[in-house]
Simulated scan of single mutants.
Amino acid sequence: MKNVLAERVKTLTPSTTLAITAKAKALKAEGIDVIGLGAGEPDFNTPRNILDAAIDSMEKGLTKYTPAGGLPVLKQAIIDKLQRDNNLTYAQNEVMVGVGAKHVLYTLFQVLLNEGDEVIIPIPYWVSYPEQVKIAGGVPVYVEATAAQNYKMTPEQLRNAITPKTKAVIINSPSNPTGMIYSKEELTALAAVAVEKDILIVSDEIYEKLVYGGVKHFSIAEVSEEVKARTIVVNGVAKSHSMTGWRIGYGAGDAAIIKAMTDLASHSTSNATTTAQYAAIEAYNGPQDAVEEMRQAFEARLEKVFPQVEAIPGFSVIRPQGAFYLLPDVTEAAQKTGFASVDEFASALLAEANVAVIPGSGFGAPRTIRLSYATSLDLIEEAIRRIDTFVKAKWQD
């Protein structure tokens, strides 16, 4: 068959994170002692009360279709959460529940973008942003937020990137892969540019609950009602409640945009899994103790492993404020150990040291690798020891 695939999928790049994680799991299944530091999900089970709520809903026969945009009771739980945690007020028609935050973002770009519309994406970025923009016919416009500026885009950079074709800018705070968090002052300054230039803001806040060192998460939608009106907040229960596989995310924003997203979802997914929706209701309405316990566990791991990673020869790393990733610049380590690129260095770590890391090229940051500390402390420390041993054994002065 000739030209069987649609042109829009021919330029897509597979998810680097999922590919590396799958490869590590395959090697482990073969009996190879691989430690994976690529996972983008908490290593804790979903809290017991949430599991019980899901089971209870099934036993009551609540297993049928729901409205495409989500159960009204789940929407209300999300509305209450946004008011409680973020001081943001939304109505039912301003919230859409999707099959995970990734699906919400995908649906959002599908309803927002016309062919050639530009979306500003700060580098480093989450791997799916550019691909989702491209498949919707949009054009990713990259702004490099360097290590010297703590991987955060400045208002000047945003302003300079805006053209007559700009439709939106993506803000991801706390960030995957950097773990950096925009302060209230920084977000206020970025929001002022968005208002002045009349562009939309896509605010990905999925790591909101995973913040450390006393740092507070602030949603850019909190800046003002004017900013809220042009912001679509994207969040979900995946990272906060260790529910990655349940696939429940949401978007909150302008009613017309939310209606379009809901209408599109009605022709694609019909609705997010009913049982998972009931689980998410309990996640937001039930006790939040487990959320804090997980946050504290991640912070304790960060305190332990950050200095160990920082001490590896040729590694330069900025201390993150949130999420559960480290993003060291390993260019010197790669060069000194005889590799032409960081990608080759990362491949050798898997093949020779049995440690799976994510090459930063997938995040637009080819000088780096991403290390997840969403696994047991013993495994993380053993992985770091292997990397350290690997680098020192191959180091060439």
Rank of each mutant, 00 (worst) to 15 (best):
M96V: 12
V355A: 07
G253H: 00
A279N: 03
I312R: 03
M1W: 13
A323Q: 04
A29P: 06
G100R: 05
N86I: 09
A374Q: 11
G360N: 08
A24F: 11
A22M: 06
P140Y: 11
T375A: 07
E7L: 05
V143K: 01
V104M: 08
E144W: 12
I162E: 14
I387D: 03
V169N: 06
A68E: 02
E186W: 08
I248H: 00
L264N: 05
G137R: 10
V357Q: 00
S266A: 13
Y207H: 12
N45A: 12
G251P: 04
G38A: 13
G314R: 00
P174C: 06
N271A: 08
P140V: 10
N176M: 09
A374V: 03
K239H: 08
V234M: 04
A101K: 01
D329H: 03
E225H: 15
E310R: 15
Y106E: 15
D397F: 05
D388R: 05
N87P: 15
L190T: 00
D198G: 09
V97W: 00
V99Q: 06
V95D: 02
T188A: 13
I50R: 01
P313D: 12
P67W: 14
K23Y: 10
Q110F: 08
M58Q: 14
I257V: 14
P14T: 07
Q92E: 15
V305T: 14
S57Q: 10
P14A: 08
P177Y: 00
A6P: 14
N114E: 08
L5K: 13
K392H: 00
S268N: 15
P122L: 01
I162R: 08
W395Y: 02
K28H: 14
A192Q: 11
T274Y: 04
V355Y: 05
L37Y: 03
T389I: 02
